[in-house]
Design a protein around this nucleic acid. Structure first.
Lengths: 229, 229
DNA sequence: CTAGCTCAGTTGGTTAGAGCAGCTGACTCT
DNA sequence: AGAGTCAGCTGCTCTAACCAACTGAGCTAG
């Protein structure tokens, strides 16, 4: 009877055309509305929260979630860590996933990026080079670069999914102890080449640059694996 | 106090190296183990279930989940439907996401697919053509084609993510009423071209074929949008 | 009159206890 | 030996009460 509670709450959101950020009925109201106990309502809401559909704020209320892809990060990171500890090359798989997506992106992106976006990418690479001199590139800078890359596509979903993959990768690297980082100088050069290729409108070159970038990361990853076993 | 219950249960899985399918402690045991009420344990488990980390079976027990990307489908489909009803081109975004990923895939796939896989793809296209004569291509056949495509990559994560995107797209199309389907005959030809390009080892041609395929779907989608408004 | 505090009333968070419902396996009766 | 039953696991649902976070109205002190 209360097994399709999740669906019914989803329907409620759809039917009422509730936009992200809109307040949901309170737990007590939902309890009456759906003719079920509060426990079940709460369990359903928790599940919806895990999916990013709903946003629960203690003492304040429940709201329609931002519908971002952020929850993906959670599951993906966990899956990857768990797989890693069981001896799978899950981190490598995650990296390949990102590579496939970004490669496909670069193809469509080349020559279609506004000069403003290109300038921002230039600035980010410049900052990377600065930071590389001080030792290591800040994580935020790298994230900003990848985020700026797909902004030009005008596809929020794509951006968020990529961001989620990136975060998951990052998180897993942070969770796993043994890590050796790549040469930051070489990494900068690769980033610069990516921007150059896109500016030149050379789709093939852009893809090659991305692939090259990932190939480098991958080889370092493999090194890590070898030492870990 | 019980706010990081989720994390603690995840840790439990990691620490005990529980593989997918392994039995979790029962709710009552977890209650004692974590020193908290049963309600909270259940809420946490529900959330974990929504992330695919745990698999709950009534009257049987709770098990470590398959860690598949299937839950992604849920959230993605909902987000897309909700966005659509609010006037966004969310379905188009989802389609572009798939396109970017499959394009990136095709690049790496070309020439690297075993003959056995290619033969299977051939067979699937042949079946499509048969079904096209009877009216419309069965959904299962299309799914099988896309699934077979990435099997050659030996990257389960990639396959699952793609499958999740595909399912979400499919589900949304089914949920939304107004739909006009593409010409099945033309669709078959495009699928055949994709296989041919990959067999030829022509990375560029394979990408073009995929792009072409999606371009066709997209134009039909746009048509649908125009009529819907 | 205003700045700040307090408190009542909202919301979600947590707990305990009871009973329901699905599944398994051993035990019993035919 | 086979079929049916039942005890004992599991998760599911509900109730009722209380805790904790936050808001906003209203009061108080400056």
């Amino acid at each position: 009877m209360a097994s399709d509670l999740l669906e019914r709450i989803k329907e409620l959101i759809i039917d009422r055309r509730l936009p992200p950020g809109a307040p949901m009925p309170s737990e007590r109201e939902l309890t009456e509305l759906l003719g079920t106990g509060r426990t079940c309502v709460r369990e359903a809401l928790k599940a919806l929260q895990a999916m990013g559909i709903v946003d629960i704020r203690h003492g304040f209320g429940t709201y329609v979630g931002p519908m971002s892809m952020a929850p993906l990060t959670e599951g993906l990171a966990f899956r990857t860590v768990a797989g890693h500890y069981r001896g799978e090359d899950s981190l490598l798989q995650l990296l390949e996933l990102r590579e496939a997506l970004e490669t496909g992106l670069a193809g469509r992106l080349a020559g279609r990026l506004a000069e403003a976006d290109l300038a921002e990418l230039d600035a980010l690479v410049a900052r990377m080079e600065e930071e590389a001199l001080d030792g290591a590139v800040r994580v935020e800078t790298d994230r900003a670069f990848h985020a700026a890359l797909c902004r030009g596509l005008d596809n929020p979903l794509l951006s968020e999914v990529l961001e989620a993959f990136w975060s998951a990768y990052r998180r897993v690297r942070a969770d796993l102890p043994e890590q050796r980082s790549a040469d930051p100088r070489a990494s900068c050069a690769r980033h610069r080449e990516i921007v150059a290729a896109i500016r030149a409108g050379d789709s093939l070159r852009a893809q090659a640059a991305i692939r090259d970038h990932f190939c480098n990361i991958r080889s370092h990853l493999r090194l890590t694996y070898r030492f870990a076993r």
